[in-house]
């Protein structure tokens, strides 16, 4: 499924990135020498102990913040500022409260001065994709958490971005809804062949979704290991019974445990 031309091998390139934050006038290194590449169409999950810098890394990919050193390329362009070519799905409550669901989903297109009839058509298509067409006129506070996250996903997807960045998008929904959302996301990913970078702290979620899992280490944040997941697709909840699933899960859990223990010393 994934083509292997040179450019597409390095569709996303994180090149020697260092990120520091100033707290109380002291510079603290949060990410040190982060290097990795992602192929076009690949689904990558980032796992690591809480506070290791997963969100910081994703914010850099989005362009919300700038690296102190190093560069980030997405599809041969250096990331300098946030924009619709890199869709972002936040953890929760990110639909704009004063816009209805359809206005939220169409907002990115409206900013591109696309005419309202085309916007409406496209919005309807995407709403149907996630089963929300009945709720198009609802305001976000009238929708459940899971519905809001579905809305956020299609809002990020509708501008046809080169990559979708997701920061624990299912972290705040209940377990049953989460499992439905995961399958929905996999379906969308197959259909659109998008490149996805997905931050999570849920090991099962990472294994279910990812082509490769990036494990981050601590003190300071770095790439500890990149683990390919060779479980056949399409995957579902049942995939977790596979031996391969359990093996890789234990491997990842041990790595994360090691890193978490380092934080406690």
């Amino acid at each position: 499924m994934i083509k292997k031309s040179k450019v597409e091998e390095k569709y996303v390139l994180v090149d020697n990135v260092i990120k520091t934050f100033k707290t109380n006038n002291k510079k603290k290194i949060i990410l040190s020498n982060v290097n990795f590449q992602i192929r076009k169409g690949e689904f990558t999950c980032i796992l690591g102990p809480s506070g290791c810098g997963k969100s910081t890394l994703l914010d850099l990919l989005a362009g919300f913040t700038k690296p102190d050193e190093g560069l980030i390329y997405v599809s041969d362009e250096v990331v300098r500022k946030p924009g619709p070519e890199r869709g972002f799905v936040f953890q929760k409550n990110s639909l704009i409260p004063w816009q209805t669901l359809e206005q939220n989903v169409g907002y990115g297109l409206k900013l591109q001065k696309i005419n309202s009839k085309d916007i409406e058509e496209k919005v309807t298509k995407y709403l149907k994709l996630v089963g929300l067409e009945k709720y198009r006129k609802a305001y976000p506070n009238q929708l459940s958490g899971g519905m809001q996250q579905r809305g956020s996903i299609i809002r990020a997807l509708i501008t046809n971005p080169k990559i979708i960045l997701m920061d624990e998008p299912f972290g705040a929904v209940d377990a049953q809804t989460r499992s439905l959302l995961q399958e929905m996301l996999l379906k969308i990913w197959r259909e659109f062949e998008t490149t996805v970078v997905f931050v999570t702290h849920d090991v099962d979620e990472a294994i279910l979704l990812a082509d490769r899992v990036i494990i981050m280490g601590v003190n300071p944040g770095h790439i500890r290991e990149i683990i390919p997941i060779n479980i056949p697709r399409p995957r579902s909840l049942n995939s977790s019974f596979l031996e391969e699933f359990q093996k890789v899960k234990i491997k990842i859990l041990n790595l994360i445990k090691e890193e978490t223990l380092k934080l406690m010393q």
Binding site: F64, G83, R86, F88, F90, S94, G108, L111, T159
Partner: peptide, 21 residues
């Protein structure tokens, strides 16, 4: 910060950010 980032990542410029967010 969240709402501002939402606007930015959907492509809003400063004026649109002010008007819509």
């Amino acid at each position: 910060r969240l709402m501002i980032r939402v606007g930015q990542s959907l492509g809003a410029n400063s004026f649109q950010l002010f008007k819509d967010i």
